[in-house]
């Protein structure tokens, strides 16, 4: 049995106490404060009315077409971004996991987008996804024309139709390397004997992946989904860096920024923040409990 260090049970507590207080105040306390604001009457810059407004700010959201529009956009973005990133990251890791000459180079090129700010990359992507067509085409539209796929030219993120799917491209580009790294770590944590044994038994490569490797990667899949999901719910810089506050690509975090800064409606802004928080919490809290439990089992 592993010995836990209980000789000095409260010494450790003393040293983490400052952090506990900081988290209690700045994470939980301030969430509580925002929650209170979301139930208040502070709906413009002059109002100091913190009195209880019931659920009016929340019910107001449901009747606000900008909010439902931003929410719908966010859902579209989330689906495409999560599936796209999962698949492309998985493909990258499948291509690399057995080892190949030049692996280090491929790996570092796939992963570098994680080291660069969305605002900087937005400059390139804005140009790549320029909406000009045909003779005036630039960026990706020009590439498509050059490849005789001119028919596929589109407005990317600048028209209502498909704007969120286009916006998912830079996001997939940015995060795929991360997913690749997580899967590579997963694959390489599986002992080689398992594969060898299956091969000796005559299993085909496809069967080995399906019945032996993928089931072992379940925790990795879960981790990837949680990471991508919470990033997607919060997405802000990426969209702001490319399209600023454009209506067609508005998501909750962008709308929230407008509501707070441009309209100074703190109560409504807080309500939107709480909506994002609750969506994340519903998924993340069970996940953290699961992680916590499986750590204790070790």
């Amino acid at each position: 049995m592993k010995r836990k260090h209980v000789h000095n049970p409260w010494g450790g507590f003393f040293f983490v106490l400052p952090s506990i207080l900081a988290i209690a105040v700045f994470v939980y306390g301030m969430i509580g404060w925002t929650l209170k604001l979301s139930f208040s009457h502070r709906t413009n810059a002059w109002s100091k009315d913190n009195s209880f407004a019931g659920l009016s700010n929340y019910t107001g959201l449901l009747e606000d077409p900008e909010f439902t529009h931003a929410f719908g956009n966010l859902m579209k973005f989330t689906v495409v971004f999560m599936i796209g990133t999962l698949i492309s990251g998985l493909i990258m890791s499948l291509l690399l996991e057995k080892g190949i000459k030049g692996e280090g180079l491929f790996r570092s090129i796939y992963l570098y987008p994680m080291a660069i700010s969305f605002i900087a990359m937005g400059t390139s992507w804005r140009w790549l996804m320029d909406s000009a067509h045909d003779d005036k085409a630039t960026g990706l539209n020009m590439v498509l024309r050059a490849a005789h796929l001119g028919i596929l030219q589109n407005d990317w993120y600048s028209s209502e139709k498909g704007s969120m799917y286009a916006m998912a491209l830079p996001a997939i580009w940015q995060m795929s390397g991360y997913v690749m790294a997580l899967f590579l770590a997963g694959f390489r944590g599986i002992p080689d004997d398992l594969r060898e044994a299956a091969r000796v038994d005559g299993a085909s490569e496809t069967k080995i992946y399906r019945h032996i490797l993928f089931p072992q990667l379940k925790p990795t899949f879960l981790t990837v989904l949680i990471i991508l999901g919470h990033i997607s719910m919060k997405v802000f810089d990426l969209i702001y860096g490319i399209a600023s506050k454009s209506y067609v690509t508005k998501v909750l975090a962008i709308y929230l920024w407008q509501v707070i800064f441009d309209f100074q409606n703190f109560a409504k802004g807080s309500a939107i923040a709480m909506v994002i928080l609750v969506i994340i919490a519903v998924v993340v809290i069970p996940y953290l409990r699961y992680v916590n439990k499986s750590e204790e089992m070790k």
């Binding site: 994470v27 604001l37 993340v284 953290l288």
Partner: peptide
Amino acid sequence: FAKWRFKGSSAIFTAFLFGMFIPYQAIMIP
């Protein structure tokens, strides 16, 4: 948290971790 755990430390640690996932907009005004 790794070597000098105290009673409730794993619950506190989990409470810390949740702080990684929150949307910072939910604390920005305060």
